[in-house]
Design a protein around this nucleic acid. Structure first.
Lengths: 364, 364
DNA sequence: CGCCGGATTCGAAGCGCTTCGACTGTCGCC
DNA sequence: GGCGACAGTCGAAGCGCTTCGAATCCGGCG
């Protein structure tokens, strides 16, 4: 009934080379060649453009391709050409990176890859180095994009001698011989501080990722903190940095403690998407209005910043841009073109409603 | 040293068809066969288990596989066996579905697929039916998991006669001949209302997805609303339902209007992850405390419910479970086993701190 | 008028793997 | 003691595509 009409009941034990009882819609290059009255190789050349074919033949072949609805068999193509036209995207499975950013990033990778006529194989980091070796050795993918690289990542040495090009999102401790892309988190931290310095703030604090992320030696967290601390120091600003959990109670407690120790704290840099909302929710209860009593700069995607209330001055995390860059770099490596080892995207700070000049303090 | 003993330094430009200068680490099944002193086919049978092989031979072959670090070439395997061992996952690119849920879902799909020895090809919906046809016809994937199916989805008819099995997340208007999985949103709406009815609420409202999602004829939104409305009616509860935008101002405006028209409204069902936080933020400003003056039930992932303040009574969106189910069903279809056409996962309502008995109203 | 070169196109050899039929011993049994 | 049965194993034929060298057809030139 609703069942499709494929040749049922065992495809007649194909005698010799006999009709391979192929599923109805399997059009092969041979079918196209026959239909167009040319050799198989001619069709191949028309499709790949690797040899000159006369305009008239080309048109005829393309017409046949269209009318038969031909799509090259990916496996055969990969086998013969040693190119799968697929790249792997390895996503972290752990917490710490924030899901929406990951997702944005993933879609950017897919979209960009498609523009280069490649597909994307999705992997999760939980397969570890084994998984990488598997897909690389099986020639399933031509290259690899790896997210959430840690400073001392077990996969990094493997990538170095794997026979497939790769691009990392994030910088390991020793990026030599690898291609890495990321937002320049050092400068992101710096930009936040400079904005606050410009507004006259003299004592600020950084609320970062949960402690576990720092413990894991995650590059971006450390680099932001370094940019924050060093820039503050250069400006002669008092600055403290601390990890930050993501539920409201913990955030409220942290903030209370902080304000208790440093009553003249007048600005916060929040580098934690999930905690941003909680920080904004907790401050009023502690008697600090944003931005009058307390300025807040976030490092987070624009939507988060815009949805918050008040809208947050922020450095955005350019997930899409990073994804595009990563794929472009990988494609160039696949073409054996040289690429820079490190690409740091400059941060862009957008001023919104959550920052204001430092309040006039009287004491001291 | 630790390096295996393969013929190093460029595999001797094999005379005739000239060495494609194959990348050094390409171990083939022939290498394994030679190393183990058996025929190629024997290796294949050891690996696939499709024919009996003596224990001694098997061990020898497996030892060779390990010592050479052999991984079958995916393209060759796919070509010969007509099975790619890859499934496609088609994610929506549009707004409306919420990113974290998508991501959770995607990782569940990948993880489950790996358990069945399959990989996952990631596609975005923006390629539309064309993309589906492409990957299906190119034999790149064996089956397809499709998210965010709309009631009248252009891809649905295509899927019906594509020669590849598929599983849909969500139900189109006419699911005949297809395999669909989803949370039972009708019953989810129902469960929320019943919980509130049990607490004595007599006038409730549903805040749903943004209007655009309803306009798009998205099944889950409509079904939740139906479950909500019909159950309320059965209980003799006054109920209104309306779409809900996701930024704070719009939410505040909506709520203000709602409370203005229905001052005795005592409970909200919020079926919109992104708006949940905004609703909670807006209510106090309107003079309603949660849960004393206003109960709130959400339909959202558990983390969102738990992170909110107060923690929200909620029906969770079981993204992982749905992902697992979808893949399991697809695998069964790949084995030509019969599967149910529709699988509706029962909702589970978790009571937290955001719901309380209805306040005693005096008027009327 | 025959030969050469450029522009096109064809044929065939694989790519690495699965699978089918056939071959080789071994053993049980009449 | 010979034969069928059967467990194991092997060889070879593709799977559909790319790519390389060779063949073909032309016009032009010496």
């Amino acid at each position: 009934m609703s069942e499709s009409s494929r040749p049922t009941s065992r495809p007649a034990p194909r005698q010799f080379p006999a009709g391979p009882a192929k599923r109805a819609d399997m059009v092969t290059i041979a079918d196209v060649a026959r239909h167009a009255g040319v050799a198989v190789s001619t069709v191949s050349y028309v499709l790949s453009g690797k040899r000159a074919i006369s305009a008239s033949t080309r048109e005829r072949v393309l017409a046949s391709v269209r009318s038969l609805g031909y799509h090259p068999n990916a496996g055969a193509r990969a086998l013969a050409s040693k190119r799968a036209n697929v790249i792997a995207l390895v996503l972290p499975l752990r917490s710490g990176m924030h899901l929406p950013v990951l997702m944005q990033f993933a879609t950017a990778v897919v979209t960009t890859a498609r523009q280069f006529d490649h597909d994307v194989l999705l992997m999760t980091a939980d397969e570890g180095p084994t998984g990488l070796r598997r897909i690389a050795a099986s020639a399933m993918v031509d290259g690899i994009v790896l997210m959430d690289v840690e400073m001392h990542d077990a996969r990094v040495p493997l990538l170095r001698d794997l026979e497939r090009p790769s691009v990392l999102i994030g910088f390991p401790a020793d990026p030599a011989g690898l291609t890495c892309v990321d937002l320049d988190f050092y400068r992101a931290g710096q930009a936040c501080v400079e904005h606050l310095a410009g507004l006259g703030h003299r004592r600020i604090a950084l609320l970062g990722a949960p402690a576990v992320v720092y413990d894991r030696d995650t590059g971006f967290a450390h680099r932001t903190r370094a940019g924050f601390a060093e820039t503050a120091h250069r400006h002669g600003i008092e600055a403290t940095a601390q990890p930050c959990e993501e539920n409201l109670d913990a955030v409220a407690r942290e903030l209370a403690g902080l304000l208790d120790r440093q009553p003249d704290l007048s600005a916060l840099v929040v580098h934690n998407e999930a905690a941003v909302g909680q920080v904004l929710a907790a401050l009023p209860a502690l008697g600090r209005r944003v931005p009058d009593d307390m300025s807040v700069v976030a490092i987070c995607p624009d939507e988060v910043a815009e949805r918050a209330s008040p809208a947050l001055t922020s450095v955005l995390i350019p997930a899409e841009e990073v994804g595009r860059q990563a794929v472009s770099l990988l494609m160039r490596k696949l073409e054996d073109e040289p690429v820079p080892e490190g690409t740091l995207l400059p941060p862009r700070l957008t001023v919104r409603a959550s920052t204001a000049p430092a309040p006039q303090v009287l004491h001291s």
